[in-house]
Design a binder for these strands. Sequence first.
DNA 1: TTTAATACTTACTAGTAAGTAAGTATATTT
DNA 2: AAATATACTTACTTACTAGTAAGTATTAAA
Lengths: 184, 184
Amino acid sequence: MADTKESIVLLGDRLIRKKGYNAFSYADIAKELGIKNAAVHYHFPNKTDLGLAIIDYHLESLENFKKHTQELGPFQKINAFLGIYDHIKLDNKVCLVGAMATDWDTIEGVIQDKMKLFADSLLIWLRLVLQEGLDQKVFTFTASVETKALMIVTNMLAATQLARITGGTNFETVRGEVLKGLKA
Amino acid sequence: MADTKESIVLLGDRLIRKKGYNAFSYADIAKELGIKNAAVHYHFPNKTDLGLAIIDYHLESLENFKKHTQELGPFQKINAFLGIYDHIKLDNKVCLVGAMATDWDTIEGVIQDKMKLFADSLLIWLRLVLQEGLDQKVFTFTASVETKALMIVTNMLAATQLARITGGTNFETVRGEVLKGLKA
DNA sequence: TTTAATACTTACTAGTAAGTAAGTATATTT
DNA sequence: AAATATACTTACTTACTAGTAAGTATTAAA
């Protein structure tokens, strides 16, 4: 038997980003994993516990991403970062930040707090990479690194959402422009 | 008695953009309007009917916005457009496109189709205004109007979402950069 | 070998979701 | 004055939600 607890987190993550936080249920997870509803509650007593575990998983993934890309140059790092969104778009998901943001008023404070942590961690890393690129003269943008980091996140976050609606190549267009924007 | 049907649409719109499509219920609406659950169903037999009416309301609002701003210059038009997001941010809402996009896989095809119409209508208007600004040499951006229109929408859509999480002045930062980007 | 922890299932509860059928009060039309 | 349409309410159903209490099989520790 595979690690059920981990499977629940992975599936929960997929469901949140496919259907939204309020549209996925313990029954969805139980059914897909071939276990009973109560088994999910055994591992995560309530939905908030599961939500927190899902954010923790993203926090860990982000740390792993940082580690695995630390030897790369600034441009490669940003490109790898955009690759995360390529996968999101390919799976027709949205990113966790967007999924949580639209349901913000229905999620508990502890989840909100952990999401803040995640968003901050992401923005901090982006700022460092952008500054690195500026220092190495790989990037030549004129905005502050804080602003630029923000713009990259907003563009990619929304590109996956907009791609769901408009379809076509809008995602790729935004992605391309984000890269161009590093040098302009 | 005020127009109940219109009040339902207005309230439904507010709830969708506050809590998300799947988190708001007919009971929420009934309670706030001091009517019974079934009264909401009288006006909108099912949630999809209400969803469609809410998008129609946005479609109308967009047409009104276009009419009311048609005498303005390109810069003023874009500024007025950003003003819509200022209000969204002030009310701690998200825009309809974002709210629907994150719940995309749980909404019916007819709603998806109408959302496509709305997103297209919005992008088409933006493209026209951007081209107008380019022609009048009010704007000097080098990207295509298609790309620039896309970037404005993604940035503003995500700025309202991100503002919910990070708080602070991130919304204003993105908003300011969007305006700057018209001339860079 | 008993004890205890782990990972569940069975069987349930209380609450809420969308949705409906049938009745009622109030206007409006014929 | 009778018939009809409008805008509801009452009272309900079915389905699903999160969540729980109690029991069970399996493994690990004492």
